[in-house]
Design a protein around this nucleic acid. Structure first.
Lengths: 190, 190
DNA sequence: TGACAGCCGGAACACGTGTTCCGTATCGTC
DNA sequence: GACGATACGGAACACGTGTTCCGGCTGTCA
């Protein structure tokens, strides 16, 4: 074990942060198809500088996505007196996040976790958090008991994809989620 | 006006059809990001042959998409005694089509019709057909009256995007659409 | 069967991408 | 202030893409 890691030079540390901020902005604007050159331009930095800090484009984007997703996940773990509201509120936050950051849908995709992706951990955490909130909401009687995680994640993934793509307005999101959430509630006994 | 269009040579006509079939197969497999070379390989044809028949990759793909969408739309216009079932059945057919052909979601996207796309016509027709079925289903009391076309199209677009991406199984589609369709129905008076 | 318009294949070109490399500039230390 | 390690910028490379071009082949028709 080598130990003793010399601290980064001050300008390097500054550049690293500028690159992360730039990547976040560019991802929000263009989604994960954004080019490394776009990030370099936004950061006011050369291409080589980016590759000095991140081995790969994928590594850079994952760094941004993982960081922001962890912040989002932190909100899911606050215990709430109203599991139904907590569940639906968190779903809506995910959709808002998707629309603003263009980067949420991938984390919800099919349960077959892509082993080569560095986002596998945070993706698993996300699905588990949703699963926990779902179970709690069902036990509280706020969500239909026959709803299972796969179809919930599939629908949520679809909503995120559409919201990322077409930049839903606040009102459209409100109306669409009202419809979807109605479908999640228990059917009143006819 | 020139008139007098000489008929295509027989081999050229044959190749044109092979290209269209190949394009359909490749689109179903890889979506609209498929390369022209992939279509050429599937058709067993040179690149030049494709460009002899279609001025552009976009033109080729649009030809496939427009043709298939027209066939799908033909089903929407059969008058039905049960507008509610007709509405939901057509929505499901669209989702199945999306999952199999990887090509439906674009037609449902934001109402701002892209003027440069040759699919604008068929996209408008699709939205209008859905709108008609929606209105009929609402008048029959089978769908909640406060549902409007924008959020319906947005949700449907999301479902198609997710189904195209992750190749939903029949069962997953069934479960997801059951939930979504429940949200479309009228809320029973408390 | 001969001649030619039409057609074909695929090499070649233009462009955008991710990534590497190296001469130069800068930071931290003495 | 000088010096070495570190970091920077951006040209250059490898690759995949859409598209064009042209020499040669082939269906068609007299």
């Amino acid at each position: 074990m080598s130990g003793e890691v010399r601290p980064r030079r001050a300008d390097a540390q500054r550049n690293r942060e500028r690159i992360l901020e730039a990547a976040e902005a560019v991802l929000a604007r263009e989604g994960t198809s954004a080019s490394v050159r776009a990030v370099a331009g936004e950061a006011g930095v050369g291409l080589g500088t980016i590759y000095r800090h991140f081995p790969t484009q994928e590594a850079l984007y994952q760094a941004v996505i993982v960081d922001r997703t962890r912040r989002l996940l932190a909100e899911a773990d606050r215990p709430s007196p109203d599991p139904g509201t907590a569940f639906l509120t968190f779903l809506e936050r995910i959709v808002v996040h998707a629309a603003q950051k263009k980067t949420a849908a991938d984390l919800l995709a099919g349960s077959g976790v892509d082993p080569k992706a560095g986002t596998a951990d945070v993706s698993r955490d996300m699905r588990q958090a949703i699963g926990r909130l779902l179970t709690a909401a069902q036990e509280a009687g706020a969500v239909r008991p026959d709803l299972r995680a796969p179809e919930l994640l599939a629908l949520l993934c679809g909503v995120c994809l559409a919201a990322e793509r077409d930049e839903w307005s606040d009102e459209l999101r409100r109306r669409a989620l009202d419809v979807l959430f109605d479908g999640l509630r228990p059917r009143p006994l006819s």
